[in-house]
Design a protein around this nucleic acid. Structure first.
Lengths: 220, 220, 220, 220
DNA sequence: TATGAATGAGAGTTCATTCAT
DNA sequence: TATGAATGAACTCTCATTCAT
């Protein structure tokens, strides 16, 4: 089992996706909704178009989802936790220290994993990002997940390396923001802005990691 | 005249905003539209709400703007060039070399300028970013401005410093993306994600610039 | 056996309610339907709410009743005959003359009986009255029962007393309408308009009867 | 000027109907709505049918009335005060004593006036009565108007005659209920139950008044 | 017999747009 | 130029009814 597969497996255990309970029609509705929401935006999408694309009657949508917003949220809300799943690992630090020879290798594995995840769920993530500003419920979840979980985990790690004198003297939030921005910037360039360009993903990931590490490493 | 004022003046000359021609009602319509679009998103906003907020009749909007989309674009489209105005300077390089003692100082002046600009036009920029995915016209403009102008200008500068051995050996697009991501990440954190936190903007800007420069500087 | 019980027994014999044939689920459906129809009105009630309240599946209702209207009518239609049952007695006159010392006593017994009946089936009677204007079938039944049976019976009695010089000289329909209005007015006040006030029912009934008899009695 | 005209004039002054402000289309909408609501009941009526009957677009209805219920209430609610207008006269007692030779004559004038009013607004009154049970707002208005105004006025008059020994010793509410029931019973018979029968309205009114007065007069 | 998912017609309502004033 | 009443298509959502299980 490769390291990537291993990471993926851990994630699956964490989030326990129970798509099993969905009926055939529900899956078709969700697929159609993702398609249409991603293309036109939530507000500009019509339930009739979703129904048509899903091959069901419009009423069927409302049998499974009380309102159109309900449909959106039940699609998009679980995405948030899946998106940041690897960062809320309980044994994150152990994995980092034991399973990977260098921090570069660890970050590379993580980045590849998330990049593949993003590639797989591109449209859903688009919808999520588009709708966060307008859906208070999503904002709450965002704060809960990112703010409380991911942030504290990262702060821990940063302090760990800082205390060893390996990281530049700077507030943890700034370092986290910087690192995350660089990675997210890569993702957005790759998938949103220039999806049709030829990309040497591997090299771009490695370069970005190097730039980040250069940036935050303490100078001798 | 301070350096900031000087930059601002140059920008004004470049973009030549002709708000002078707008009637009183038009200005009210635009202000109301920005307000409503930013709050609810373009698709979920109604022209009647805009009219009401602007204190004009519904018909008046359509006297000045053929369609709702027309209203959106005439608000948002000019923003793109204003947003990237300083980066398309003709005498960018001269300014950089002659007016500022170090590159840090130059980047700092630039960042402060854009941060203040973003603060002033926050809602408009929000709308712009929200609607780019759905408005082909905006996408074209984005590519035209960013792709052709900003990118080439930066590539020039990067090559200049590379040839002097001061910048790490890496493709210019990657370096640009990395630098821009770090700065934009700061802006989004400041204005979108944590607008209500207390911010030491100056320090955050200087830190971010330091991290970027650390990242891209050639190691001795 | 009290006179009230005796009257009740006669009524039961007349109308022969065959609720025995109803299954458990049917009874629950009817109860739920009465509840919901009375609360929201027939047209504003949904079969799904009835099904939910009855604890059965939506389809089950339509297994027993072809349509929603069918459900309404099979609930409400038998009520009409039950409501006017005592007035269509075959031996009405004999009872009146033999079993009760005075006409006041007879009317009092009758009123108490109907009042208790109305109290017991309040919601059903509400539905019946609400729906008569919109259900031609109910209108027919109303005319058949009231018009043909009750009216002729009363006309007979009135003529009987008129011929004895005990009742004022006035057309029987007017006298019937007057008497019925006074009693029905009492019922509606009691149950519909002021159901929550404290009522001395006995006294109100006796007063109303006295007023009616005062009104229709021939003056010496 | 006849006594009837005089009464009508007083009423007009009291209720101050300002139908003048209604546009042509609004009047058509109201007329159509009254027609359809009366025929099918509020809940079973569709706005599209009303629009069609009024000869306007469906959207036009919602420009003037926020919701379907709004349409109902703005039609029906003003009816309540108009319906009971003559009974809330400030100088009711003076009129009764000065302008009419006998109380019979006064009641007769009043009854004729209300009968003509009911005839003119038959459908509206039907709708009002049908919807009172389901519209809390109407119930409130009913209690406010009938309970507080009409009732107290009548109680006053009853006490006045009681003290002169002309009315039977009985609670005022019972006497009012009895009298109102007899009159309302006549109206309902006339307009709702047997609208198609030939009616000698004058005689029926006079008979009913006589029966009421017989009922409530103190016996020598 | 009982279920409940599925239907699709039609409900009330919104809205960008038009046009007579 | 500015208005706002009017439009009617399109929207989200409800509902009585059907039917495979």
């Amino acid at each position: 089992m490769s390291q990537q597969d291993q990471i993926e497996q851990w994630i699956q255990e964490i989030i326990k996706i129970d798509e099993a309970k969905l009926t055939d029609k529900q899956i078709k509705i969700i697929q159609a909704a993702v398609e249409v929401f991603a293309e036109k935006g939530y507000a500009a999408s019509s339930t009739s178009e979703i129904a048509q694309k899903a091959g069901v009657a419009e009423g069927t949508i409302f049998r499974h989802y009380k309102t159109k917003k309900d449909l959106l949220l039940s699609i998009v809300s679980p995405m948030m936790s899946r998106l940041i799943a690897p960062f809320v690992w309980n044994d994150f630090k152990e994995v980092l220290e034991s399973d990977y020879p260098t921090i570069e290798e660890f970050l590379y594995a993580l980045a590849v994993n998330r990049l593949n995840f993003a590639r797989k769920h591109l449209k859903l993530i688009k919808i999520l990002l588009q709708e966060i500003p307008f859906q208070p419920l999503l904002q709450e979840e965002f704060k809960k997940h990112i703010g409380n979980k991911v942030f504290h985990r990262f702060a821990e790690i940063v302090e760990h390396f800082k205390s060893k004198g390996q990281i530049i003297e700077m507030p943890a939030p700034s370092l986290l923001r910087f690192s995350a921005s660089a990675m997210i910037g890569l993702f957005i360039s790759r998938f949103v802005i220039f999806p049709d360009q030829p990309w040497d993903e591997d090299k771009e990931i490695r370069d970005t990691i190097q730039l980040i590490l250069n940036g935050i490493s303490a100078k001798p």
